[in-house]
Design a binder for these strands. Structure first.
Length: 584
DNA sequence: GCCGTTTTCGGCCCGACTGTTTTCAGTCG
């Protein structure tokens, strides 16, 4: 039986939704399952235990049917309803659904009419012309499907935030320079600060929309034009990244910016709130519903914030727009003042050539100074990470000495000597306390034995956090975005333990990690856990990732006061000298 | 399948683009 986790419950509900779509079920039933998955993902509490105990009553979005199914799944690890559904379709259909332009209806038709159930079979059928003969398909469809299969094979379809940022900012700059453009912005998940994006959504306010879609379709670096109309265009860049453009008028700007920023769930909630005020909201206006005796607020709204104001809400920052409690907070005027890039004063988890870094201690220090940081912590790997040339006791103590010596060359940059110490399989640490006590701080991380069951992995991390020398926990789940799944950890228990032991949790903002995930930070914050935004830099450029760390921290509702590396140099010195258990 | 300060039944957000169609279905966001 697979281990039952929150993600397992949520993913299974999503999969049911997909299967029901293939069956052609009632779309609202499908939505109910998708919504249920989201409720499970964002539930504040031990949803797995609640499901096991059949104690889900009263959770909004989880009705009788989902309660029963979640209970069955959590207590047995299986769900008969899901198994039966799954048996109706071959596995390969899921792959077909990932293709651009193919939805459940078309996949269903291909399967039922032509028995196509794999990418290979689909490619052959398109090449043979049998797909084009199908009702609802034609010559063009065959070509598009073949192109989509090619794209699918080349790219997984998602990209790291850090990887798309250069293209994103380049194109935004070009749009803003265009003489017919009044305003331009990148909306979508990029604006919301998601750690990976599927595409980039550009928005321009202009009097000449068709000129802009034309301009956009001819951008340098374009591999292929997917669509080009009078107000909308879509391209594939050579990197495989899809970029969409919407061209709208000045008057529509605030509505379109909000609409295309999403998230989808945020928009749905906003629209339904508008309806309760007898207003209808879309990407063009906020207008009274038909028959309502109300003044149309549209003409006076010039900025996004005024839409929220009109609906009696505090302005909700894009980072928070995930329908995870931001509406309730905005209603109560209780939204946090989010941390900003300027608030950051230093950083801790960084490597040098002493282990697997590519820059020397001195190069890293110079780079930190150039970035305007007030302090820099060095934490190379410990001896068990032999693959990363981890330091043994002798080399570590020599490094501490080197850091103290280098410090004499810097007046306005404090250097801290730390270590990224391996948490061994049983939760003990790679160095004994006598060694750790000689360091300014310690990051404790897992680098091996990823496959432990959740309970053991959680106990392993908790044991490490209970060590008084462990300042912070490094990359909590070890995930590598788009490459390696996180190992199993009970986030709730880790967060509670961090609060109790005053252990900081790292927000590892290496582009491929962004770990702990943004969705957990609000909970951690509410329990008084502090965050350290660390780039896990292995070279000088790696320090730049702090910028993305701030974006993800904002997404996690974090304020300046929740982040230890927003402390000033003096405050940090005091903080590190205070025994762990007595720290704020 | 979920939900209820209009409702326990009848709603559930909505518009642009494409291709296959002659008025619309499917997909996407």
């Amino acid at each position: 039986m697979p281990e039952v986790t929150r993600d397992l419950l949520a993913d299974l509900l999503d999969e049911i939704a997909l299967l029901l779509e293939l069956k052609g079920e009632n779309p609202f039933k499908i939505r109910a399952y998708r919504n249920g998955a989201e409720v499970v993902r964002s539930f504040d509490g031990d949803i797995v235990q609640r499901a096991k105990d059949d104690d889900l009553k009263g959770i909004k979005g989880i009705g009788d049917a989902l309660q029963q199914k979640l209970h069955e799944l959590a207590s047995t690890g299986l769900l008969e309803f899901h198994q039966n559904l799954k048996d109706e379709f071959p596995e390969g259909l899921f792959e077909l659904l990932e293709l651009q332009g193919l939805g459940p209806r078309k996949v269903k038709a291909l399967y039922e009419e032509l028995a196509i159930a794999s990418l290979g079979a689909l490619r052959r059928a398109c090449e043979a012309g049998t797909v084009g003969a199908l009702a609802g398909f034609g010559k063009k469809s065959e070509e598009k499907i073949l192109t989509a299969i090619d794209a699918h094979e080349r790219f997984s379809g998602r990209f790291l935030l850090a990887a798309v940022a250069p293209d994103a900012e380049r194109i935004l700059h070009l749009l803003r320079q265009h003489p017919a453009v009044n305003r331009a912005e990148i909306a979508g998940s990029y604006r919301r600060g998601k750690e990976t994006v599927h595409d980039l959504d550009f928005l321009v306010a202009t009097k000449e929309p068709a000129t802009l879609t034309e301009f956009f379709a001819r951008l340098e670096g374009t591999q292929e034009v997917l669509a080009q109309g009078s107000t909308k265009a879509a391209i594939h860049l050579q990197s495989g990244l899809q970029c969409d453009l919407r061209a709208i008028s000045n008057a529509e700007w605030p509505f379109a910016l909000m609409y295309f920023t999403g998230s989808k769930d945020h928009n749905v909630e906003l629209r339904s709130r508008a309806l309760k005020q007898k207003l209808t909201l879309n990407e063009y206006h906020l207008a009274p519903v038909e028959g309502a005796e109300l003044e149309d607020p549209t003409p006076k709204i010039k900025e996004e914030s005024e839409i929220y104001a009109e609906m009696g809400l505090q302005y909700i920052e894009p980072a928070l727009r995930e329908n995870r409690g931001e509406f309730k907070a905005a209603e109560e005027g209780a939204l946090p003042r989010l941390v900003e890039q300027d608030n950051l004063r230093g950083t801790f988890h960084n490597h040098t050539t002493a282990s697997d870094g590519r820059a020397t201690l001195e190069e890293m220090a110079n780079a930190a100074q150039e970035l305007g940081l007030a302090y820099l912590g060095i934490s190379d790997h410990s001896k068990s990470s032999f693959q990363a040339n981890g330091l043994d006791e002798e080399r570590l103590l020599a490094q501490v000495k080197a850091i103290r010596t280098l410090q004499t060359k810097f007046d306005d940059l404090d250097l801290y000597a730390g270590n990224e110490v391996d948490i061994l399989r049983d939760g003990s640490l790679d160095f004994d306390d006598g060694i750790l006590a000689q360091l300014d701080y310690v990051v404790a991380s897992v680098h091996a034995s990823f496959g432990l069951p959740e309970k053991e992995m959680t106990a392993r991390l908790i044991k490490a956090m209970e060590n008084p020398h462990v300042t912070m926990l490094g990359h909590l789940t070890g995930r590598l975005l788009l490459r390696r799944d996180p190992y199993l950890v009970n986030h709730e228990k880790i967060i509670d333990c961090a609060a109790e032991t005053k252990t900081v949790i790292e927000l590892n903002c290496s582009g491929k990690r962004m770990d702990m995930d943004w969705s957990w930070w609000r909970r951690a914050r509410d329990r008084g856990v502090k965050c350290s935004i660390n780039p896990d830099a292995h070279n000088v450029e790696g320090l730049q990732n702090l910028h993305f760390g701030i974006r993800v921290a904002r997404k996690g509702w974090l304020r300046r006061e929740d982040i230890v590396n927003c402390l000033s140099a003096v405050e940090m010195r005091n903080w590190l000298q205070t025994p762990k258990g007595q720290r704020d």
